[in-house]
């Protein structure tokens, strides 16, 4: 990788200040997205600001109707969380099929959401559960957060501090892994809110990254069951096609993963 300057701030404010001082700063949380790109010399930040040791960014709380996971909480910590298991087990399941054990020790929810990889798992949970993204500047609704491949509503230097997931009535996640990278070839998160709204998000499938799937939402709204999707057809327009899956295959996976997610949600 290219030479860079490494910083380890101890507060969010210090991190933001360091960021603005650098000519081309980047935040690093677990490092499992940024460092591989830097190793390939595809990114060359002047300054790397490590958010991983900021205590105020770590923790999981349940308050009222929401599960709030602070941004630098690792996947491993989510897997250990009794609160998460109790309130939204689908998030714990999603975390358990994400990356590998070593990645889960280092990777953070904030890093995943901020990066918005089109095949990452957590964006599907954020969108399907209608989560809100809290930053050091404001609160952003999950529906307006993801802006296509590797792009989000975050402004330059803005730091995600926490993600707040409304606790749903039912939720499930099912993922067909990319055989090589183990990202989602297609992953579908289904949720039924306590108000009865059905929200479904698919990752890995679309050319524009994570997306809602209205036809499945409509079918499940009418009848919350896997069988309700038997005759649903997912259009292939805008879906990814590559050596690991045609767009027709991904369209099928959206349906099949949704069915399995519904079955898992109960």
């Amino acid at each position: 990788m290219y030479e860079t300057t490494y910083h380890r701030p101890s507060s969010v404010d210090e991190a933001a200040a360091l960021f603005s001082k650098g000519s081309d700063s980047k935040y690093l949380a677990g490092g499992h997205t940024l460092l591989p790109v830097m190793k390939q010399r595809l990114a060359s930040p002047s300054d790397v600001i490590d958010l991983g040791r900021i205590k105020e960014l770590v923790g999981i709380d349940v308050s009222g109707d929401a599960l709030t996971i602070k941004a630098a909480t690792t996947y491993f910590d989510i897997l250990q969380s009794a609160e998460a298991k109790k309130t939204i087990p689908a998030i714990v399941h999603l975390t358990s099929v994400l990356g590998d054990p070593q990645v889960r020790y280092r990777g953070t929810i904030g890093g995943s959401v901020a990066n918005n990889d089109p095949a990452a798992d957590f964006p599907a949970a954020v969108l399907a559960l209608g989560a809100t993204i809290k930053t050091n500047k404001r609160t952003i609704a999950g529906d307006g957060f993801f802006k296509g491949l590797f792009s989000t509503a975050l402004e330059d230097g803005e730091i995600i501090t926490a993600i707040s997931f409304p606790i749903p009535a039912k939720a499930g996640y099912s993922k067909m892994r990319h055989p090589a990278s183990r990202f989602a070839l297609t992953g579908v998160f289904v949720a039924q809110t306590k108000a009865g709204e059905v929200r479904v998000a698919a990752t890995g499938a679309s050319q524009n990254g994570v997306m809602r799937v209205p036809v499945i939402e409509a079918a499940l709204k009418a009848n919350w069951s896997a069988g309700a999707l038997d005759n649903v057809t997912i259009p292939t327009d805008g879906l990814l096609a590559d050596i690991h899956g045609s767009s027709a295959y991904r369209a099928n996976l959206i349906k099949v993963m949704a069915q399995r997610a519904v079955a898992a949600a109960g």
Binding site: L28, V48, V103, Y105, R106
Partner: peptide, 11 residues
């Protein structure tokens, strides 16, 4: 257990 190829020495 972590992958030491994906951790900066500073981390």
């Amino acid at each position: 257990a972590v992958k030491s190829c994906t951790v900066l020495a500073g981390q």
